[in-house]
Simulated assay, not measured.
Amino acid sequence: MPDGTRQWIEAGLDRYLREFGEEALHGRIAVPGPEFVPPGFTATQEQTEELVARVAAVMGADADGVTVHLFESPPAELRRRHGVGRYRRVLGRTLIELDRLEAARPAVFTAIIAHELAHARLLGERRMAQGRADGERLTDLLTVFLGMGVFTANAANSFPRAAEAQSFSVLPVGDLTERMLTGLANEPTSRLGYLTEPEFGYALAYWSFLRGDRRPAWARHVNGGVRDTLTRGLRHLAARGGARPLNGRFP
């Protein structure tokens, strides 16, 4: 990963520490499981509002000020790139719109909610100006800082739904990627979010260092591609002597 990208990630997380404080840094970490997304989730209005409330509790967002609207995008064969989630402010309230079709992958659906609530915390709370060129990437980065990074990192480069039935992932080896090792190199993937898998991996590593957690137990919940970068990022930071002083800023 280029040094400039690492510096951008570190500067962003440093700023979030100044903005949101130590309590937010050491808050809850959400991981996939039935206690977070109950079995039988089909994205009814009630289920979705309950899930939004759970994600909001992790991220310190005001769930009572959020209105949830569900929509369904055209069938996959009729669409190429589409918005699976949207954030707006309407009459002083946060409105998030979510594609119900993504509920077939509850963990991905949860990641979409996290991204939209990160918009609410940055734009709705006027912590970031609207229209920044890197605004969406900074929004992804905030999901890491506010405890939802396992979900958003795993959703960054999803395998096809049919392939998810394998229920396993592998660590990359040398130049071999996870997709090559699982035999899915020629299969289409579903890209979600604005940070890449390696960027999410390094963000999780630096965030873990800021938390003082050199051996994060939650790392077993991230997929192989992200976990590889996370592990190498932790080694890089250990060799460097830890996190930088809090003098970073957004470029």
Rank of each mutant, 00 (worst) to 15 (best):
residue 2 P to R: 15
residue 36 F to E: 00
residue 138 L to E: 14
residue 72 E to N: 11
residue 150 V to E: 01
residue 121 R to C: 08
residue 42 T to L: 12
residue 212 G to Q: 11
residue 123 L to C: 04
residue 37 V to M: 01
residue 26 H to N: 15
residue 161 R to P: 00
residue 60 G to K: 14
residue 214 R to D: 09
residue 52 V to M: 07
residue 151 F to I: 00
residue 132 R to C: 10
residue 36 F to G: 00
residue 174 G to L: 04
residue 227 R to L: 05
residue 45 Q to F: 04
residue 214 R to T: 14
residue 1 M to F: 11
residue 165 A to F: 02
residue 47 Q to A: 13
residue 205 A to Y: 09
residue 136 E to G: 09
residue 229 T to Y: 12
residue 88 R to A: 15
residue 164 E to L: 11
residue 219 A to N: 02
residue 56 A to L: 13
residue 209 F to Y: 08
residue 143 T to K: 04
residue 46 E to S: 12
residue 38 P to N: 01
residue 209 F to G: 02
residue 155 A to Y: 02
residue 99 D to W: 05
residue 199 E to Q: 15
residue 228 D to E: 07
residue 245 P to I: 06
residue 217 A to Q: 10
residue 162 A to Y: 06
residue 198 P to V: 13
residue 127 R to K: 14
residue 49 E to W: 03
residue 8 W to T: 06
residue 48 T to H: 11
residue 149 G to R: 02
residue 218 W to R: 01
residue 135 G to E: 15
residue 2 P to T: 10
residue 147 G to A: 08
residue 46 E to N: 04
residue 77 E to C: 05
residue 137 R to C: 08
residue 193 G to T: 09
residue 202 Y to C: 08
residue 109 F to N: 02
residue 210 L to A: 03
residue 157 N to F: 12
residue 26 H to E: 04
residue 110 T to R: 03
residue 72 E to I: 06
residue 115 H to E: 11
residue 86 R to A: 07
residue 183 G to F: 14
residue 198 P to N: 12
residue 196 T to M: 13
residue 94 T to S: 08
residue 176 L to P: 01
residue 98 L to E: 01
residue 205 A to K: 04
residue 242 G to S: 06
residue 168 F to G: 00
residue 251 P to Q: 14
residue 96 I to K: 03
residue 85 G to N: 02
residue 247 N to E: 15
residue 69 H to T: 11
residue 187 E to H: 10
residue 88 R to S: 14
residue 37 V to I: 10
residue 63 A to R: 15
residue 158 S to Q: 11
residue 153 A to K: 12
residue 44 T to Q: 08
residue 129 A to F: 10
residue 83 G to A: 14
residue 4 G to Q: 15
residue 214 R to V: 12
residue 111 A to T: 04
residue 19 E to K: 02
residue 25 L to P: 05
residue 149 G to T: 01
residue 117 L to I: 02
residue 75 P to I: 09
residue 98 L to F: 04
residue 50 E to S: 13
residue 100 R to K: 15
residue 17 L to P: 01
residue 13 L to M: 07
residue 54 R to S: 07
residue 124 G to K: 08
residue 164 E to W: 01
residue 122 L to Y: 04
residue 212 G to N: 10
residue 127 R to C: 06
residue 84 V to R: 05
residue 118 A to Q: 05
residue 157 N to D: 12
residue 224 G to W: 10
residue 37 V to E: 00
residue 60 G to Q: 13
residue 94 T to D: 06
residue 13 L to W: 10
residue 99 D to T: 01
residue 113 I to G: 01
residue 50 E to T: 11
residue 133 A to Y: 14
residue 146 L to N: 01
residue 159 F to R: 12
residue 249 R to C: 08
residue 237 L to S: 03
residue 159 F to D: 05
residue 3 D to L: 14
residue 39 P to A: 09
residue 228 D to R: 09
residue 153 A to F: 10
residue 205 A to C: 08
residue 211 R to A: 03
residue 244 R to P: 09
residue 228 D to Y: 13
